[in-house]
């Protein structure tokens, strides 16, 4: 193994330019893919915070009384995967309103009766799919005692539709850049192979197995993929550190926007993918050459 690693490093050194081009191409592709992923991760978090992590408020009709609560809870639980359910009586809702409005509550004292409805605040366990939330809300609304349900179906629904469309386009772009990097890696390996044709021929004639001949190329592919991935992520990190505070500050007056770098899990995934890309490009080329 050490022999193959040494061989691969020596081959990279002897073909510096070709290898550098491949690493830079992989790095650029990874950078573009990572930008999309960074955007989706942050946008997803912002939407989650807007959506309050899958919270919905169920408003109950006038005729509701506390005795109906256990039966209602059971019914709602049977309709979907509910994580948490909190009953907010109309009296408690009014108190909360008074507390939140502090000094501006004088007009509330003039009210002859409490205009707020009884409500149930629910937290949906799986809320990433807006369609699922929508279906659950519609089912809850069919319960007689339920007057209305609020879950961000207005602007948030529309926004999510646009966001999902953008996400699909983003994934397609990621796929395109992945294929482009794969094609270039495969081509580099082919060029490297042909430039070492004499060496390969001699290896065969002195009794080298196919594995012995191919191994340095695979290691070269893995190194190219890994370095390309690391370089792409490095470039993204530098850019992020330079612009993140500026973006957060300029958006702070409009929305709460906590821009974060890719999660460790995502960074690992990107590095693994780019390393795999290097290997797979090599595999495709060698398969074609050795067939």
């Amino acid at each position: 193994m050490i022999h193959f690693l040494k061989r691969a490093i020596a081959d990279i050194r002897s073909n510096k330019f070709l290898n550098l081009i491949t690493i830079i191409t992989i790095a650029l592709s990874i950078l573009v893919i990572s930008v999309f992923l960074l955007f989706f991760e942050n946008a997803g978090r912002v939407i989650e915070s807007w959506n309050q992590g899958g919270r919905a408020m169920i408003y109950l009709k006038e005729e509701f009384n506390a005795d109906m609560l256990p039966q209602l809870k059971t019914k709602i639980n049977s309709l979907g995967d509910i994580d948490k359910m909190v009953y907010i009586s109309k009296a408690k809702a009014l108190d909360t309103l008074k507390n939140s409005m502090a000094s501006q509550t004088t007009f509330l004292k003039t009210l002859k009766e409490n205009p707020l409805p009884d409500a149930l605040e629910i937290k949906i366990r799986s809320y990433n799919n807006f369609q699922e939330v929508q279906t659950l809300a519609q089912n809850i609304k069919t319960i007689d005692i339920v007057d209305d349900i609020e879950y961000g179906q207005g602007w948030l629904g529309k926004f999510l539709k646009i966001f999902n469309l953008f996400k699909i386009t983003g994934y397609a772009m990621c796929g395109f850049f992945f294929l482009m990097a794969l094609f270039i890696t495969a081509n580099t390996v082919r060029l490297a192979f042909y430039s070492r044709m004499l060496e390969v021929e001699i290896m065969r004639l002195v009794g080298a197995t196919e594995t012995f001949i191919k191994a340095p190329f695979y290691i070269e592919g893995l190194i190219q993929g890994f370095l390309g991935g690391a370089l792409g992520l490095g470039a993204l990190l530098i850019t992020y550190l330079m612009v993140s505070s500026g973006i957060t500050q300029s958006l702070a007056s409009y929305v709460y926007f906590d821009l974060r770098f890719l999660s460790v899990k995502m960074v690992m995934f990107i590095i693994f993918s780019s390393t795999f890309l290097g290997w797979f490009g090599c595999y495709l080329s060698l398969k074609q050459i050795f067939k």
């Binding site: 004499l198 060496e199 021929e201 001699i202 065969r204 004639l205 002195v206 009794g207 080298a208 197995t209």
Partner: peptide
């Protein structure tokens, strides 16, 4: 490869890398 290892070959054009 096993067969070829039985041979030592000296090529007309040396075939050195």
């Amino acid at each position: 490869p096993v067969l070829r290892r039985r041979f030592g070959i000296v090529f007309q054009d040396f075939k050195l890398i």
